[in-house]
Computed example of a mutant assay.
Amino acid sequence: MLKWIDIIKYANNGAPAPDRRVEKTEEEWKALLTPEQFRITRLKGTERAHSSELCSLFEPGKYACVCCGTLLFDGSEKFESGTGWPSFTQPVKENAVAYHKDTTYGMVRIEALCNTCDAHLGHVFEDGPKPSGLRYCMNAVSLEKVESNEQKLTFGGGCFWCTEAVFTLLKGVAKVESGYSGGKIDNPTYREVCSGMTGHAEVIEVTYNPAEISYKDLLRIHLSTHNPTTLNRQGADVGTQYRSVIFYRSEQEKEDAQAVIDELQEAYGDPIITELAPYEQFYKAEEYHQDYYANNAEAGYCQAVIDPKLKKFKALFRDKMKTETI
């Protein structure tokens, strides 16, 4: 998660390298864009406040650069700032946006640009909502809404190396990230979480297409590939950070999660004690935790703990797996 100190660092030292670069002449941009789009994105203009319906749209979707099509923001990070411009708390990727110090009009501000094509997007301020505290104040003209029905699900069931290894194999799953949720401090480190003092659980955040795999099916797989009857423990991993938990994003998700728990209860001799908690924030874990099994399949923990879990998963849910992973 980016915070203000990161924005200042990138404004002073340059943003991370973009995934690609798009460069065109002024005439080529003029031929591609409307006059207003050209004025805002290529001449660093500002649209009139409250001039776009984009300010009041909060349905799922993604937002791309109107010039080059690079994905910049996810609708889940959009919020009502009351400023009259669309506002976001985070970009979709750390290298999606570039930052420049802007001293025009007698002010010192941080300008936000598309890191792919240098299109002017707006400015970033440090008066946004917690936990990032950022407000990406964007010109709606700079953005293009991209329809997407992807949804996210966050849950924990022991070491996130194990759960990540399972869910990356599923059809309809676009992305799995390991991280921390349900605790008391912002941006916890692995060492802090392992202390048990922060209250966070090791979790994964699954981005999935509900047209291909349902929320309930994901939870059925979750509850069937770890032991949801042991309190704060999975095998030799002991502590509150290893608790069985589902973070719901709506009352409907809460009801559906409880229905799945009730459905699977008779398969277990002991009561399912999986915690149901409202989702607040997901903090992505350190990079060395991401794709851990894929990068360390020969490690002792992977062979002793994750391999048997994957074998059980494949026996139970072969029909749910991506074809290339069977």
Rank of each mutant, 00 (worst) to 15 (best):
K311V: 04
G84E: 05
L143W: 09
E287N: 11
W4C: 12
K311L: 04
A211F: 11
K314C: 05
M197H: 09
G300R: 15
W85N: 12
F125W: 09
F88W: 11
V203G: 07
L276K: 12
K309N: 08
T103P: 03
S52E: 11
I221T: 04
E80I: 00
A285P: 06
A165L: 03
M107I: 00
P188V: 00
C67P: 11
Q303V: 02
Y99Q: 07
I204W: 04
I272C: 03
T34Q: 09
L33G: 05
E94R: 12
K9M: 01
N232C: 10
T103Q: 09
N149R: 15
R21Q: 13
A236E: 14
G106D: 13
K314L: 01
S142Y: 07
E36P: 00
F313V: 04
S81W: 11
E53R: 15
D118K: 15
N232Y: 11
I221M: 02
G182F: 02
R21I: 15
T207V: 12
P86D: 07
E150F: 14
D256I: 00
L71D: 13
V260P: 04
V108I: 14
D127F: 11
R135E: 07
S214G: 13
T34H: 05
M1W: 00
L143K: 09
L33D: 07
E212Y: 02
L219M: 06
Q241G: 07
K311I: 00
Y208H: 08
T230I: 12
K78S: 08
W85P: 06
K3N: 15
E266D: 12
G45W: 08
K216D: 08
E280H: 10
V141F: 06
N227I: 10
G157N: 08
T103C: 01
F282R: 00
S142T: 11
G199F: 04
Q281K: 01
L170P: 02
Q258M: 08
K78N: 09
F125P: 09
P60Y: 09
Q252A: 06
S178C: 15
V124K: 06
E27K: 13
K93C: 06
Q151M: 11
L32G: 01
L71N: 12
F73M: 10
E147Q: 12
L43Y: 07
G239K: 06
V166K: 11
G196V: 14
Q281V: 14
